[in-house]
Design a protein around this nucleic acid. Sequence first.
DNA 1: CATACGTGGCA
DNA 2: TTGCCAAGTAT
Length: 372
Amino acid sequence: MNQTLPLSHTDILPDILPPLLQWYPAQADNRQLPWRESPNPYHTWLSEIMLQQTRASAVIPYYERFLDALPDIPALAAADETLLMKLWQGLGYYSRARNLQKAARIIMDRHHGKLPQDQSALQNLPGIGPYTAGAIGAIAWGKPWPAVDGNVLRIVSRVLASSADIASARTRRAVTDALSPLYPSGSSAGALNQAFMDLGATICLPHGAPHCPRCPLAALCLAHEAGREQDFPVKKAARPRRVEQYTVLLLRQGNTYALHQRPKKGLLAGLWEFPNLPGKAASQQIRKYLRQYGLTADSLVPLPEARHIFSHVEWKLSGWLICLAAPCCIVADSSLPLRWVTPQEIAKTYSVPAAFSHYLPYLYHPTTKSMK
DNA sequence: CATACGTGGCA
DNA sequence: TTGCCAAGTAT
């Protein structure tokens, strides 16, 4: 069962576009989004990448800071990697930032410094998939390309009362194929894509009851007609995440602390972290761990435990603030390449993921009791 | 097709 | 507190 879309109902889809187009300009002013104020292909591209799986409210400050630092594609292509990752710190899905720069360099090398308007050339750029290509094409150049994201899938599955699993690629393709021939060219294309997003963000909500009385599609929505709005969309249950335990070490030496750069691949690739060891280590094990690297602790103070939830992993963290013995040889062991930096340098330069931010406040702890 | 890949807000 | 999940893409 659970076809892609109930074909007997796809004749409803053509009817949803006019109400959406009429509704969009009437309410668009309610959402002040910086990327709508000075639209150009680079701005649209950057915003769409940042908005992948990320709420607009979270994106806004990052978007503005990023554009201040890297105002155009040549600047992005030439940017220092450290700055690039610092600009992305805390936004998540860090490969987005690296792919953004990879694409910028390809654009400089092969596309005369401008985003290619050819659909397949655009979609072949790193980080740009079917959704983002559609969004950029429609918004920046008025291409008649749908941008099928979670909002579109939720809205369409409610309008059609479709039980198709919106997590499946097949459903996404079916919706794209159903919408493509209906799309207009010109400014209406971008308006339509943004209307879907605004409707999804403000009316046809992903959780909680949708605001159907204010919905321009209520009259033709089959889920609404049946009073079953919250039965859609149907989505396969997520797999349980695995749990990992780590012991995080705030190694203090004078007024500097040790940072370690994570591997180039995998979770939080290339970001900076506090040195840590797997498992929940006791103070004896920590001393032994430090000894391997020629380090000796003057004091070890346990810090509160912390938990950090990723999409697919959960970290249980136990932390320690450790003051190292004064005359410390800094070991240049490649298996533990540590960078000794001040809290100010961490804040200014190093990209530390949120998973470690639980322990950031303890950097300043020192012995100076502090004046509140 | 399934899985890896972050983070914060909301019910 | 817990669980869901948001303007997806790469592999």
